[in-house]
Design a protein around this nucleic acid. Structure first.
Lengths: 344, 344
DNA sequence: ATGAAAGCGCTAACAT
DNA sequence: ATGTTAGCGCTTTCAT
């Protein structure tokens, strides 16, 4: 058994062609399952390719065909639990296609987003999925003139460049406010991330205060954090708020993790939840099922957002231009009262 | 102000060359900051490129230079909390380089891993970072003959194809067992994921039982799960084990999430932790700081693993072959006793 | 069903 | 400091 010496130069179609005695063109056809090739030569080519350990060069293929099966996915970070879930949705859908996601992170910085987008576009991807509707003017320009499907995700409060898939965070905030008011809570505090650049959190907060205002209620106190362990922060912030404003009867958190921390703290303190104080979070992270009480929350439908966005890109890529784009998919965040918001 | 009509055909270097009256080659030099170009032409080229909205084509560039600044990252999934953290480490390091991570998911399936690897390699990346040391023979062969740095991560119990960065899970299991025995616990249960393909969990379990055996102790009960909300599963499993084997005095969980669920359940039941029953998890997810008690755990140093792996790839990519590869970095998982393992 | 020629958009290598 | 030429490895197009 002669062992093949490891090639220093990566193998090319030519190598397979020579090894199989079939023209490069036909080898290419076999390897891509295109065009008519007799079963006999098919087999010979396959065998040769396998024996050599040939791996096609998509760089060359992409250049020749001007078709690149990459989808650029641009998100703030991986630390925020929601984005891994969106990505899971995206890759579930793309797994059934030829498309491959390529992920870039912006760390919530507009300049970084611009740079990452530029880098991504230079790979000539088949589509772009990008978080949020707020981008720098150059970024918007790049998206608009890229000539590929662009799906802005997470948020639908604004004008998309092309398509958008998400929920209305303003509406989510309003609905939560209404539910809280309806249960008779009056002294309501808001606890969340500092949000200079977290547009979604800001919109939720705006919707929230707006709906409270309609009921003649103002946010009684608020507290913001950044960084650190969310569960621990939730405890700290809750303590701070209740020390400062003891008559608070409801705590609205901008995410479930800090909400869970707050809940644990309240229970530790022997506070009657939801009788004395009600709580609600945001996101519907099922990671948290199993807390002593089910936290009221609103499902942001992250996985579906990922799936829908990927479907739009995949459909457009398959159609090759037949698709006009401009899809708008607004999903409904579903409120779940859990056990911390319903004063039954 | 004449507005440029949106080009249907993507712009090429040639367009910039014509718009600026500078040769394609020099345009290329300017855009890549290579070679000597006078400040004057530099400015003209930059302006033309900007005005046109030119975005370079890396597909063509990659083919011409046979240099592709992508790093293939192959991991099981995004749902397991540890991988987003590894990715964060990787992208922290790569952000300071020309390299871009491209992520592929295997869902813990060896065949999928093989396929994803093949796809990735066909992009001719500058390096591969892949989770685990266990791969199918074809996958190993591809890695070995790819001619690029390969870093296998998470685990160091085995033989790497090239470099590896991780912790010894066997040792992690052993150390946890020793700590538990040292505190005088005797009736010890193991609770974890079903692990036909989770080699790391299996190795931890092996190390764990091995060290217990040395102390003359056998695992008194065990329980496995798959899928579902980890916190909730932790509760259920804990209840099941304690119902079945009431004299258990220690619960070792294969991850912190189920450990946290177990802890919450025990506290609900009024069980004296760690007096009556001790608990420990694995991973050191700081997500969980803020629980009623700090769960004993062992930090798997995920972020550092990501960073180290990325550094190895980045160094090799910079050196261009000067680097022989074959790096082995075994990090020490650090045990933290928390409040659930030290019977002070 | 198979092959030959041309060229995708860039960059390496060599002029000048 | 700038330009010219060739070609990266594949696919498209057109023959046969």
């Amino acid at each position: 058994m002669a062992n093949t010496p490891p090639p220093r130069r990566p193998l090319t179609l030519r190598d397979v062609s020579e090894a199989s005695g079939v023209s490069e063109m036909t080898v290419s056809r076999v390897l891509r399952n295109r065009g008519d090739v007799s079963e006999a030569t098919r087999a010979r080519v396959r065998e040769a390719a396998k024996k050599l350990g040939y791996v096609p060069n998509k760089i060359a293929g992409g250049l020749a065909s001007s078709r690149v099966n990459l989808v650029a996915v641009i998100i703030p970070s991986m630390s925020n639990l929601v984005f891994p879930e969106v990505l899971t949705g995206i890759s579930e859908v793309l797994d059934d296609t030829e498309l491959q996601p390529v992920v870039g992170f912006t760390n919530y910085l507009p300049e970084r987003e611009e740079k990452v987008l530029y880098e991504m576009l230079s790979w000539r991807p088949s589509g772009v999925i990008i978080a949020g509707l707020e981008h720098t003017p150059p970024a918007r320009a790049m998206l608009a003139s890229a000539g590929i499907p662009v799906v802005e995700i997470m948020d639908t409060d604004g004008e998309p460049v092309d398509s958008m898939v998400g929920i209305s965070h303003r509406r989510a905030g309003r609905e939560m406010a209404r539910a809280i008011v309806q249960q008779g809570y009056k002294r309501i505090a808001f606890l969340g991330t500092k949000m200079p650049l977290d547009h979604r959190a800001r919109k939720r907060f705006e919707g929230f205060t707006e709906a409270l205002a309609k009921a003649g209620i103002e946010v009684a106190d608020q507290e913001f954090y950044s960084g650190g362990s969310a569960l621990a922060k939730g405890r700290e912030m809750t303590e701070a708020v209740l020390k400062r404003t003891p008559d608070i009867d409801f705590l609205y958190y901008s995410n479930d993790m800090i909400g869970a921390g707050g809940l644990l703290w309240c229970l530790d303190q022997g506070i009657d939840v939801p009788g004395q104080i009600g709580l609600a979070g945001f996101n519907g992270v099922d990671l948290l099922e199993g807390l002593p009480m089910a936290l009221a929350t609103m499902d942001a439908r992250r996985r579906e957002i990922g799936r829908k966005a990927a479907e739009i890109v995949a459909a457009a890529a398959a159609d090759e231009g037949a698709d006009a784009g401009g899809h708008v998919v607004e999903l409904e965040p579903s409120l779940s009262l859990g056990q911390t918001l319903s004063r039954v």
